[in-house]
Nucleic acid binder design. Structure first.
Lengths: 363, 363
DNA sequence: CTGTTAGCGCATTCAT
DNA sequence: ATGAATGCGCTAACAG
């Protein structure tokens, strides 16, 4: 094994004490410039890299952030992780990765986390059932940030999007295209984002003066199969009752819907326009390509890291006005989404002149 | 912050020495059953979790495996990582993740790795330019395993596939379908796998007694654009010289080929049959769906972890016959691939009776 | 089988 | 501005 170069070696070679080397390492100011230079040079020559493990142990706080993620194969995850990794890279922190395969108990996972004792903070993607434990940990002082791609109410610092507004934009897009009977395939009620997207849908109908028909709201699971089921349900509807368009609460279900629709001889968008939600990689490649709300997954990752590190460095944030009692509501970073117009909504066929990837940020 | 429960606490509460607690922790056998029980109970009660950081420091070897990966958005990566994560989960090791964004210098990356001093081994996905450094590290005793999805000659322990045989199968599949003029879009020569796939292609032609036409071999970059370029090149060929089928060295290029072909009015598979290589998620969803060689990415991840840990635990492997001089060639785990038959090769339209996902393992 | 003694490599008091 | 001493939480020899 490579003989690890230690601070002691550097100290000896540079003719200073270990303490001084340590000071240089941590960029303390109270080191004579000349000495610092010399030490730095020796470190360079020796290829010295301080042991994070030891530093963490001795200093009481480590430079490792624990990242808890759902399986990588979940389509939204890679982009988020890319953002996380890239943000971390610019810091002197490292990532310890825990993948939370659905089956395991929250306790097991959390134990693995604490096990390290070297993870000084936690970044959790889609906490789901872990939330209670996270709250507990956070209340014990562990900095935690969640990316609630589809999460429960953020009692924790979080980064996410405004689901209500985004759903509103999606629905309004359909309304603007002239569709009047607009259905909605919603996600499971236990997901807050499913409710919010439903609310955005309702609100858009209301604002446009369109009647709300409960028969046009279908219950989904956020999974492909429920998209297929919805298409079947729609196809069996009497022609007069069929909607002209549908807003589907995530792309995964939209894929199922699209494929079943094709099999059923339902033409998209001619017979039925479709708008999804998420914009995962596949969305640009299914047939027809899917008009959808783009979630800024990459940016979510980046922002989450920044938030986490800011929590770590300055636990004393400037008090929010009106929170004079000392209670600070958890920080929430809300990122903008964007409507990506593709084939499935019919905009391209109906109005060729319209710009293809039109941002509805003027909403 | 939560007051960490230490071994000392447990020792006091259980009325034993710290050493004994440590022995229990590491499942040493020389502890009286009764004592062990008591210690375990106390640990349970106190919710004790040993600090990996301290353990690593003290024991000289840590329980962290460094995983070096290309950007997660590279389509083959998530599956591999899923395999890695799942395999790790069954152990008491943890993952420290380094994403190797192309731009950075190998030194920077390697420094980050050594920085920890807590990573006792390395798992590298697509080492690429890092290889020289890795060899150096390995020769210094650091256990390293690479997953050479498209890597250079494995002088390091590695897990991968047999590219030659797989390419042979792909080409032979086209030959069996009756195509005789078969083109090949190859990857860049600096990738060993590109050469091997080319060799497999050549061999299949030879074995089938088909003439080899150098004009039918195109140079690609493994990226989408070069697939498009190839389609254009093919389309400009005089009709008489056009191939009836093409074996493309990876799916990414095949996507480009498919989309350009569509734009050029070239029908796949009627005018030209296509077989790709990799079977990444998109491959089942492009139009037409892509017949391709499935690489077992998930299994590669799992196997790599197992190999790495075995290297870590028993550096003394049983000598390979014929290596009496003490030199051990690096271990290579070669996983089987599988031909996945979809639309683009024409098998489904030509021979409806054939099974859809026919494994050519009898090759 | 079990307790005692030393460190692992570093950060952090205290001194000076 | 720098050096010496102490300890983070744990494992690894040693002794019994």
């Amino acid at each position: 094994m490579k003989p690890k170069v230690t601070i002691e070696d550097i100290a000896r070679l540079a003719g200073v004490s270990k303490a001084t080397v340590s000071r240089v390492l941590n960029e303390r100011s109270n080191v004579k410039a000349e000495t610092r230079e010399r030490v730095l040079r020796v470190m360079q020559e020796q290829g010295f890299v301080p042991s994070l493990a030891a530093a963490g142990l001795a200093g009481g706080r480590s430079r490792l952030v624990g990242v808890l993620t759902p399986p990588f194969t979940q389509p939204t995850v890679p982009e988020i992780l890319r953002g996380v990794a890239e943000a971390i890279e610019h810091t002197d922190y490292e990532i310890v990765l825990y993948s939370t395969n659905a089956g395991q108990s929250p306790t097991t996972i959390v134990n693995r986390i604490l096990a390290l004792g070297l993870t000084s903070c936690l970044l959790v993607i889609q906490p789901g059932p872990l939330t209670p434990r996270l709250l507990q940990l956070a209340s014990q002082g562990l900095p935690v940030v969640v990316i609630d791609d589809q999460g429960p109410p953020p009692e924790l610092p979080s980064v996410g999007i405004d689901n209500r507004v985004s759903a509103y934009q999606a629905t309004m897009h359909l309304i603007r295209l002239g569709y009047r009977r607009i259905a909605h395939l919603q996600g499971p009620a236990e997901f807050r984002c499913a409710q919010e997207r439903y609310q955005g849908y309702r609100q858009a109908l209301d604002d446009a003066g369109l009647p709300f028909d409960p028969a046009l709201v279908f219950n989904g699971t956020f999974e492909t199969a429920s998209g297929r089921a919805c298409a079947v349900a729609l196809a069996t509807l009497p022609l007069a009752e069929r909607p002209e368009a549908i807003f589907i609460a995530n792309d995964q279900m939209a894929f199922g819907f699209l494929s079943a629709a094709e099999a059923l001889g339902l033409r998209i968008p001619q017979d039925l326009a479709v708008v999804g939600f998420d914009d995962i990689p596949l969305s640009a490649h299914v047939r027809p390509t899917l008009t959808t709300i783009k979630q800024p997954f990459y940016e979510m990752g980046r922002n989450a890291v920044e938030l986490l590190l800011s929590l770590l460095h300055g636990p004393a944030m400037q008090p929010v006005a009106g929170a004079e009692d000392g209670y600070q509501p958890p920080i929430r970073i809300q990122l903008p989404t964007r409507l990506v117009i593709r084939e499935s909504c019919g905009a391209l066929t109906l109005h060729r002149r319209q710009e293809q990837e039109h941002s509805l940020s003027d909403e």
